[in-house]
Design a protein around this nucleic acid. Sequence first.
DNA 1: GCCAACGTTGGC
DNA 2: GCCAACGTTGGC
Length: 156
Amino acid sequence: MPNYWLMKSEPGVFSIDDLANCPNQTEHWDGVRNYQARNMMRDQMRKGDLVFFYHSSCKKTGIAGIAKVVKEAYPDHTALDSDSDYFDPKSTVDNPRWFMVDIQFVEKFTHLVSLQRLKENPLLKDLPLVQRGSRLSIMPVAEKQWHEISSMVTKL
DNA sequence: GCCAACGTTGGC
DNA sequence: GCCAACGTTGGC
């Protein structure tokens, strides 16, 4: 049984289309600089887990599609690169502070499942995404929530 | 662009 | 260990 997750990305920086256009439709998920998100990625994300790809900070916020974890956590090299926006002087090769996983494109929804619809669904009230003040960029999705959201995807 | 809410830092 | 100040996230 896979675990289920939701990961946020700003489509202006990296969208689900960008993922679909990557070599092997696979990309490493760098730049996570939050301990809670890091811990979940490092300690709980397993190869084969499924991920809702969420578009944040844009005109149409919501879940844009699905990806899957194809490589488990390994050190985030952008933390060691002083030219990177994600550089962290406290991270070292011997003692990496930040990690990333690789995810692969699975599916893009014809219509994204909007944040508004997620908020309106009472069965999803415990999803961290819709809770007030939640800023987690990576969060677990319960199996029931995963199936509920899947049922909200419009098929044309 | 605003701002509420949250996370992190650092002085004490 | 407390907590004020600051930085960031992200919806609107």
